[in-house]
């Protein structure tokens, strides 16, 4: 697998949200607008990239028996760091994302990549993998948030296109499930068209 493929597989072929169906809690919970989805995605991407690198770095010294506690400690530390930084420099975004930021610790994408990839590969490869999956996550959350914002509030990235309210259900919880389901249909249709050989 070339270095580029390492990065690119996270975008479509192994997209964490639409293909692997990992990290559903923040995916459905935070994507009430494009900017919220993107903020959550970027925070997760940072943690994912950094923790992947750190875990790849220590993979040879960590005994097998305690690898999960070690991974979690590393991930939790990065999450706390990101949380503190957000609190300090983007307090508004932090206020909207609230409890979902500390919950990045238990996002299965991150532990999943640590276990499945970073613990067996070099630092650079792990970074690429983390970046690819992270960007895929950011894209998915931004698209989901954008669609919900567009339908639910008639705006995109805070810019309003209509007067009055949108279709409220889309910014509420049930709308998240509906939009997610239909986006997944579209995504599968598109990726089937992109590489018809995969079947």
């Amino acid at each position: 697998m070339s270095k580029f493929q390492l990065f690119a597989k996270g975008l479509i072929k192994e997209n964490p949200v639409f293909v692997l169906l990992l990290g559903m809690c923040p995916t459905l919970g935070t994507t009430t607008s494009a900017i919220n989805g993107m903020g959550m995605g970027i925070a997760t991407m940072f943690v994912l990239m950094l923790s992947n690198m750190a875990i790849a770095l220590i993979r040879n010294v960590v005994p097998d028996k305690v690898r999960i506690p070690c991974f979690i400690v590393v991930i939790a530390s990065f999450v706390t760091v990101v949380e503190l930084l957000m609190q300090a420099f983007v307090p508004d975004l932090y206020a909207t994302l609230g409890v979902f930021i500390p919950l990045i610790v238990v996002n299965c994408i991150i532990l999943g990549r640590a276990e499945a990839f970073a613990s067996k590969n070099t630092v650079f490869d792990s970074m690429l993998d983390g970046l690819g999956i992270g960007v895929g996550f950011v894209l998915a959350l931004t698209v989901l948030g954008g669609t919900r914002e567009l339908l639910g509030a008639g705006s995109l990235f805070g810019r309003k296109f209509i007067t009055g309210d949108g279709i409220l259900i889309f910014v509420l919880a049930p709308g998240a499930f509906m939009v997610f389901g239909f986006l997944m249909v579209l995504f599968n249709k598109l990726s089937a068209r992109l590489n018809p050989k995969a079947k």
């Binding site: 279709i167 409220l168 259900i169 889309f170 509420l172 049930p174």
Partner: peptide, 8 residues
Amino acid sequence: VFLLISFP
């Protein structure tokens, strides 16, 4: 229910 939640 869709309409009720969307256009209360």
